[in-house]
């Protein structure tokens, strides 16, 4: 029975994702972004099938197992775009570091103003980087990786929903700049969004996500002093 439910969960996820991509390609809107659409659909179907998150977990573990090699695979866009990134290293790194600093300082300030507890602050510290790295960092420092994953995902989903139109309005049109911002602030989901804009934007975002992950990994011991 478990095997059946696991197969069902995985198939459901794949089909929801494929349909989500098709719908987004036809009717691009914040509410049809593939992850947002698939998540809502899957949750509703799980509930309608009388299944809960526990039942879905074995299937979830199989799918997320591939986040490891997927993170390693980010070396490829990094490698392919190494020349343009090295050439524009100064703007790229400045944008990444300033963007990460601003997002973290604002997140912490608001969290402290609302006196949110420390385990939430720990999750917020890794919210902009890709899930596999965020989860690993939180576990390395004894935090709750489920919370981190939730914040990372919310940031990614919100990012893909808000950022494209916002950057258009602010006249940020340079694909290199958009790619860096997508990858730095909204990690994998941002990268997926960037790839929809153009292959180049996606590649830059992939590289930025990789570098942002490395930056936060290296600076986390320092950041954790403030938690």
């Amino acid at each position: 029975m478990t095997a059946l439910i696991t197969t069902y969960s995985i198939l459901l996820t794949i089909i929801a994702y494929i349909i989500g991509r098709k719908i987004y390609a036809k009717y691009p809107s914040p509410f049809t972004t593939p992850v947002f659409f698939s998540t809502i659909t899957i949750i509703l179907i799980l509930l309608a099938s009388g299944l809960n998150f526990e039942d879905y977990t074995p299937g979830k573990n199989i799918i997320t197992y591939f986040l490891g090699p997927a993170t390693v695979a980010l070396a490829v866009p990094l490698y392919k775009n190494r020349k343009i990134i090295v050439k524009h290293a100064l703007p790229a790194i400045s944008g990444m570091i300033l963007g990460l600093m601003v997002t973290l300082i604002i997140a912490f300030t608001i969290a402290l103003a609302f006196s949110l507890p420390p385990f939430i602050l720990q999750g917020l510290a890794v919210k902009s980087i890709t899930v596999p790295i965020a989860v690993e960092i939180t576990e390395l420092y004894g935090g709750d990786s489920n919370i981190s994953a939730a914040f990372v995902i919310l940031t990614g989903v919100l990012g893909t929903m808000i950022a494209p139109k916002m950057m258009d309005k602010l006249n940020i049109t340079l694909p290199f700049a958009r790619g860096i911002a997508y990858g730095t602030i909204a990690h994998g989901l941002g990268t997926a969004q960037a790839a929809q804009e153009s292959e180049f934007t996606g590649a830059v975002a992939g590289a930025a996500m990789a570098i942002a992950g490395i930056l936060i990994s290296c600076f986390f011991p320092f950041i954790s002093h403030f938690l």
Partner: peptide
């Protein structure tokens, strides 16, 4: 608190990051 923290920090993170790269 969470919604504001995640939302506002996301918006300004995006603007600062993209704007810095574009200007430089």
């Amino acid at each position: 608190g969470l919604a504001l923290s995640l939302g506002v920090s996301l918006i300004f993170g995006f603007i600062v990051s993209a704007w810095t790269v574009q200007k430089l």
